[in-house]
Nucleic acid binder design. Structure first.
Length: 935
RNA sequence: GCCCCUGUGGCGGAAUUGGUAGACGCGCCUGACUCAAAAUCAGGUGUAGAAAUACGUGCUGGUUCGAGUCCGGCCAGGGGCACCA
């Protein structure tokens, strides 16, 4: 990197039409203005042509765009321009993910109001995006912080609430005791708040949840149909949903040992085959049974308190060690009333998964084994691997989790794992425990109480047939000892945020009536603007007139919900709003949504593989359930682009230095860097993701100022496959810049030649003209295919190839005698070339298109038509292998039969020599591909 | 720990999905133009070898007439999830 480009800057001439250098500074704003004036990218919903919806993930208005945006939006723009040329009505909108914490941080740090900060940033970034020449329909621009947007979100929240898709429940949060705020997991660094540095506490808060878990099975099933999504993303979502099939078991508790009211314990397991290898029962530290036992046992209470600490602060150190505490309670084995298992509280059991209780089979689970080895409970193997002698098979330090046959398991002995699971399930499904003698079971007590009057009656799960329904609704008496159950890792989506700069949750809490939805006529609940950030905590919580309102039902004193929604809610439906962003009476126009969605091609970063994409899939289903949409899946095609990376530089004292201040000399191993200003030696570091902290960023504004938007766009698409990281190098940009100049010269030369071309297409073409036409149509076929597959780097390579071929052809022309057919072919080829690179370098393409004598805009031109007969050669050259190694070529007629080809091949000198007069063992002829002679 | 992905010249990467490995670009070398440089143009550039030729897609074994591509084992790098019962 050498700071300002080493190349001479384009001269600032008024226009670049006189075969001089292409002047991007002059041309780019000129064409942008013209596109804008003619409104050619504004999409009409009533356009009858087939639709194509291309969308890039909308940006957070941080203030400036970065190279990652340039790459993302360029890719989307190429698709948009290509599809437009292919005759589609293309929806390609842009908006702003405008709520979020950075605006509040700016308010705290710099005393700017979040609204002003956000809108200033939007204005700045919009200007930057416009300088890139993107074919966006700006008339559909939306910002999620606009009440005109979020009022619809509030309406949908209320509709979801009515439909039973929202509930209010207790949940643990990370609480920053200094800033008085809830922290997201990623804001907790080594157990401390990222801003305050205070030790983070776990707190129970009542929060709003979207019931995404209602759709666990559907979200999982539908992944199979998303065949235009990267396999990687689908797999990540599958793992995230985390379906597991198992058995819910009731373990009776020995009444003499049980504390208070607890008579039994629910345990979820996927390894019920190992039931005879059980050595203990374990419950999570926050399990109700643990809480009950601790009430009478101060040591246990201390142990539980210790476990909760581990959760946050010292996790790394303590994680490895399995700790437990024997409660003294005994659980009774489901198959043997005389078999009593000790009940431990153990730190490795999660309350959030399953029932928060397990039975431990140490021989076949490493965690359980580590645990029993610590507490001396022993391990009996019950699954014996094939080929092992059951008599000598023992487990000491490594659990066996592979396949095998059952041993030490009474009636299960000899069965496979699958057979044993089935047998256990079958027997226990039909076994019933006697009615409990007293009180509520641990499992029932463990259900989180939802006492709000608001809560709608429970809806039947759409997946009852799958066994997804929690069996807790069944009554004690009619429940068998075991029930088959499907469990999911996916948890409900907590959307409450104790912050100002977000969409207000449209709820009022009345002292008498409880939780009341804000009547629809009162929407939107807008954010008050007269707030201050001088005190810690949520300004909404201390805003007297906004917070204190009258109950919509009884007119009595009430207070507003002061939590706002997670910003992932905002981005879960923006793609739907784009289809009709003008409608004021509803979130969307059903007709428009069903006509435009799903998004045909969605492009964004892999970092959104799970949350954003999963939430949007849920939200679309919830919109369908409440009549706002008629589809399930929002994104038919998904593409995740790689990052932009750059070499890093740092001074001797370790301070990072931005590339623009560094000069690099030498090549390969002899590369040395120094500071331009002082000559100070700079150490060259690794190639890493562009980030502010490492200062290895390149500002898109600087690049556009030096080289123009087209060069930046071209370079972002060259070389690296779009789903991999691209390394930003000065040399690479200069290469791209040189190519823009070359295309410009080529267009000028072709325009000169084209002047003498006949208007009508010649009846016949000579050999040179035919060669040019074949190159043009060949490139057309390959580039079209590559864009369709989003292989932009391959597309770039084919355009280079075609430009090289065209340049060579021009070089071969002797200017005195130019046959009319060749002149015509040249003009055709130049017209094709310009249209081929137009999606990538739209400004240069317009300039060239005009230079070629056209009066239309290339942006509105149709994609060139392929003449397929030009792609077919009359003769073909096949490689000839002898014993699998290439030795010769053979040229035959395209439609030559296998016998003809074989004859021709056997007549080749190289083949005759290799065979030495003998007959070949075999001759393999693959039509249109290859010939292999086996000697 | 579990799961997934990727390994091809000096570098980024192509390879019609089992059929000529290294397209195209960057870099480098040589030449032309120039007083000179830049830009531009022409040629060269996987390794070894003067050449014929041999070797060559992380390593290793296999399937096949034929493997970068398919299968087994290993190594390295990257990513995701993580006491998930």
């Amino acid at each position: 990197m050498s700071g300002p480009p080493a190349l001479k800057q384009p001269e600032m001439t008024a226009d670049s039409s006189k075969n001089e250098r292409y002047n991007a500074h002059d041309a780019e704003p000129r064409w942008q203005k013209l596109w804008d004036e003619r409104g050619i990218f504004a999409t009409k919903n009533d356009d009858p042509r087939p639709k194509y919806y291309v969308l890039e993930m909308f940006p957070y208005p941080s203030g400036r765009i970065h190279m990652g945006h340039v790459r993302n939006y360029t890719m989307g723009d190429v698709v948009a321009r290509f599809k437009r040329a292919m005759g589609h009505k293309v929806l390609h909108p842009m908006g702003w993910d405008a709520f979020g914490m950075p605006a509040e941080n700016a308010a705290i740090d710099r005393k700017v109001h979040p609204k002003k900060w956000t809108y200033d940033n939007i204005a700045a970034m919009k200007k930057q995006l416009q300088s890139m020449g993107l074919s966006l329909d700006w008339s559909r621009e939306i910002a999620t912080c606009d009440p005109a947007y979020y009022k619809h979100q509030q309406k949908m929240f209320l509709d979801f609430l009515k439909a039973g898709l929202v509930e209010r429940k207790q949940s643990k949060v990370n609480w920053d005791p200094v800033d008085h705020t809830v922290l997201a997991n990623e804001q907790v660094i080594e157990g401390r708040g990222w801003r305050s540095g205070a030790a983070v506490e776990q707190r129970e808060l009542t929060q709003w949840f979207f019931k995404i878990s209602n759709y666990s099975q559907d979200l999982l099933n539908a992944l199979d149909k998303l065949d235009r999504w990267p396999e990687k993303v689908r797999l990540m979502q599958r793992n995230w949903i985390g379906r597991s099939e198992g058995l819910l078991l009731r373990f009776a508790l020995d009444a003499k040992t049980s504390p208070g009211s607890e008579s039994e314990l629910d345990i979820f397991t996927t390894r019920h085959d190992t039931l005879f290898g059980a050595k203990f029962v374990g419950v999570a530290p926050d399990h109700p049974l643990a809480t009950a036992a601790a009430a009478k046992n101060p040591k246990l209470a201390a142990f539980i308190a210790e476990c909760k600490k581990i959760g946050t602060a010292q996790e790394a150190i303590e994680k490895a060690e399995k700790l437990g505490f024997d409660t003294g309670i005994k659980a009774i084995h489901p198959f043997d009333p005389a078999w009593k298992l000790p009940v431990y509280v153990a730190n490795f059991i999660l309350m959030d998964y399953g029932t928060g209780a397990i039975f431990g089979c140490p021989a076949h689970d490493q965690r359980d084994l580590d645990f029993v080895n610590k507490y001396g409970l022993g391990a009996t193997p019950v699954v014996c691997p094939e080929g092992q002698d059951p008599a000598t098979f023992v487990i000491t330090t490594t659990a066996y989790d592979g396949d095998g046959r059952m041993i030490n398991s009474r009636f299960l002995d000899g069965m496979t794992i699958e057979q044993a699971k089935e047998e256990v399930a079958k027997r226990l499904e039909t076994t019933f425990l006697p009615p409990p003698e007293r009180g509520r079971s641990a499992s029932e007590a463990s259900r989180v109480g939802v006492s709000d009057s608001m809560r709608p009656p429970p809806r039947p799960s759409p997946f009852q047939g799958e066994g997804a329904e929690r069996p807790a609704q069944a009554t004690k008496e009619n429940r068998p000892v075991a029930q088959r159950q499907v469990n999911y890792r996916l948890r409900d989506w907590g959307i409450s945020r104790q912050r100002y700069w977000g969409c207000p949750i449209p709820i009022v809490h009345c002292e008498k009536c409880g939780v009341m939805p804000v009547p629809e006529k009162d929407l939107p609940v807008t954010l008050p603007e007269d707030v201050t950030f001088d005190k810690p905590g949520n300004p909404l919580d201390r805003h007297p007139t906004w917070k204190n309102v009258k109950c919509p039902r009884c007119d009595g004193p009430a207070r507003r919900e002061t939590d706002t929604m997670d910003t992932f809610v905002d981005s879960s439906w923006y793609f739907a709003r784009f289809t009709d962003p003008w409608i004021a009476t509803a979130p969307t126009d059903r007709k428009m949504i069903d006509a435009w969605l799903p998004v045909d091609q969605y492009i964004g970063g892999i970092e959104h593989a799970i949350l954003h994409l999963l939430y949007s899939r849920f939200f679309t289903r919830a919109m369908k359930a409440t009549g706002h949409a008629g589809i399930d899946e929002p994104f038919a095609g998904l593409f995740t682009q790689g990052m932009v990376v750059h070499e890093t530089y740092r001074k001797a004292d370790g301070e990072w230095v931005v590339p623009a201040e560094v000069k690099v000399e030498g090549t390969e191993d002899n590369r040395r860097a120094s500071l331009i200003a002082t000559g100070e030696k700079i150490e060259i570091g690794g190639i890493e993701k562009m980030s502010k902290s490492r200062k290895n960023t390149v500002d898109p504004d600087d690049i556009i100022a030096s080289y123009g938007a087209d060069t930046a766009r071209w370079f972002m698409l060259s070389d690296s496959p779009p789903d991999r990281d691209v390394n930003w190098t000065e040399q690479g940009v200069q290469g791209a810049w040189r190519f823009t100049q070359r295309l410009w010269r080529l267009a000028g030369e072709a325009a000169e030649i084209g002047k003498s071309a006949p208007v009508t297409r010649p009846a016949a073409f000579g050999e040179p003209a035919l060669a040019v036409r074949k190159a043009a149509h060949g490139a057309l076929a390959k580039v079209s295919d590559a864009i369709e597959k989003l292989h932009f780097n391959v597309c770039v390579a084919h355009i280079y190839e075609f430009a090289n071929a065209l340049g060579d052809a021009i070089g071969d022309i002797e200017s005195e005698k130019l046959p009319p057919d060749l002149a015509w072919a040249m003009r055709e080829a130049a017209d094709i070339l310009v249209r081929l690179f137009h999606p990538m370098m739209p400004h240069l393409a317009e300039e060239c298109w005009a230079a070629l004598g056209h009066t239309t805009l290339v942006a509105t031109e149709a994609w060139p038509q392929i003449e397929p007969e030009l792609l077919i050669e009359s003769t073909i050259t096949l490689p000839v292998q002898i014993n699998g190694k290439k030795r010769a070529d053979v040229t035959v007629a395209r439609d030559a039969g296998k016998a003809d080809i074989e004859t021709a091949v056997l007549a080749l000198d190289a083949v005759k020599q290799a065979l030495g007069g003998k007959r070949p063992k075999k001759v393999i002829v693959v039509p249109q591909r290859i010939v292999n002679v086996v000697a």
